[in-house]
């Protein structure tokens, strides 16, 4: 099952290359945009896992994105994108 998924991902990734479109367009990969150290926008996320002033964990199709910082809060959240504001110190994948 996992192998099939991996194969499908690989195929989609290759198709993106052939079609010359942005990466993640076809296989729904998370799109993370960092504006300096104060704002992060994550598109194509799955759910919010953990939320506190010190850290935010967001589940995406490509794994869990973890943000560490000070006075973090969510500027907005829709079913497609989430924006985290505050003083971001670290962005990592788990």
């Amino acid at each position: 099952m996992a192998e099939t998924k991996k194969k499908a991902k690989g195929l989609l990734s290759r198709a993106e290359g052939v079609l010359d479109v942005a990466q993640g367009t076809l296989n729904n990969l998370p799109n993370i945009t960092l504006y300096g150290t104060s704002l992060v926008e994550i598109d194509n996320f799955r759910s919010l896992l953990d939320f506190s002033e010190g850290s935010v964990r967001v589940n995406t199709t490509d794994g869990i994105v973890r943000l560490d910082g000070i006075a973090l809060h969510l500027a907005y959240m829709t079913d497609e994108s989430i924006a985290v504001k505050g003083s971001i110190k670290n962005l990592s994948f788990e």
């Binding site: 759910s47 919010l48 896992l49 953990d50 939320f51 506190s52 002033e53 809060h73 969510l74 500027a75 907005y76 959240m77 829709t78 079913d79």
Partner: peptide, 28 residues
Amino acid sequence: LERIINIATQKGIFLRSITTSGEKSITF
């Protein structure tokens, strides 16, 4: 509390200015 944020978002409710106010409460 993340549950309510996720479920509300799935229901199409647009949340903004989500801040924690203490360990067991959030405001939005």
